[in-house]
Write a protein that binds this DNA or RNA. Structure first.
Lengths: 153, 153
DNA sequence: CAGTTAGTTCTGCAAATACAGAACAAAGTT
DNA sequence: AACTTTGTTCTGTATTTGCAGAACTAACTG
């Protein structure tokens, strides 16, 4: 597949978006490439060529993406190449994991509340509210997915 | 204030949690200290002493936290010191910003869908579903806060 | 079994990060 | 006016990161 300027520019933007999420640059670019590539499946050396990086860097990045469960490869009879693809079908679990991750702060808030004195009741009260909300939020997540499903049908 | 081992250990854990979110180590430790400190307000040089780091590092970290709107300082009459505190009261807006941030991926998904061919309909379909969900999710956020408020009362 | 293909692991390095320490600034104190 | 306090800014550096390139492995091919 030949990438247009538009493709390349979008891959870069998706790359920096993922960099901001803490991923290393190349990992973000690979996610971008796998997203815009028309087949959705891209061979190891097409990744190397399209992104103009070394095999070692691609190997490490793909190992990382597979470990994170964001990426898989398939093979084809009579072809030793691996074709890598994003697990776009898993967006529900992925998104849910993201949500649970950001509400992980509740764990710390609660620990903090346990060891705080009552020298600053307003501070404590705000933190307690936040913790309550996070608990509420986590409980509401499944219902949110349900409502989406119903609204779609 | 004298920090116990428990305090120090919790500050470290809160620190690495924030490091994983992309912040620099000291910034995370300062958030931890401001959370566990009984007064909630901590002077510049108490931060320096409690965390055992240089003034320059603390100065830069606090500038960053203030720029991000996560931290403010107040002063006291007849006292030139600045007392720094987290904006715990802003947790609603902060959390909302976090949610909007993670759903920012929709922007990219939609751009990707626009330039994709229909060579892989299943892939496109999954992405379209995800985009629809993200749209739905963003719309639901205010209602979520409302329900929490009502449930509290 | 020599050569090719497809990818991994190891070694090294250039650039970025995160901080220390010194110099500096601004304001108050004696 | 010299000195102290409360930070900020500048300069240097140890560490970490992110990748390249070479050496390597495993499997297939002629």
């Amino acid at each position: 597949m030949v990438l247009t300027e538009k493709h390349k520019e979008l891959i870069e933007r998706i790359g920096v978006f993922h960099e901001h999420k803490g991923m290393q640059p190349l990992v973000g670019r690979i996610i971008g490439l796998l997203l815009v590539h028309e087949e959705g499946e891209v061979s190891f050396d097409e990744i190397v060529e399209q992104l103009g990086v070394s095999k070692s860097a691609v190997s490490n990045a793909l190992t990382f993406l597979q470990a994170k469960g964001r990426c898989v490869y398939s093979t084809r009879p009579g072809d030793r190449k691996r074709y890598f693809a994003l697990k776009v079908s898993d967006w529900r679990e992925d998104f849910q994991k993201d949500l649970e991750n950001i509400s992980e702060i509740q764990k710390f808030i609660d620990e903090v509340l346990e060891i705080r004195t009552d020298k600053n009741p307003e501070f404590n009260c705000n933190m307690k509210d936040f913790s309550n909300f996070l608990g509420f939020f986590k409980k509401e997540i499944p219902a949110l997915f349900d409502r989406f499903k119903r609204q779609q049908a």
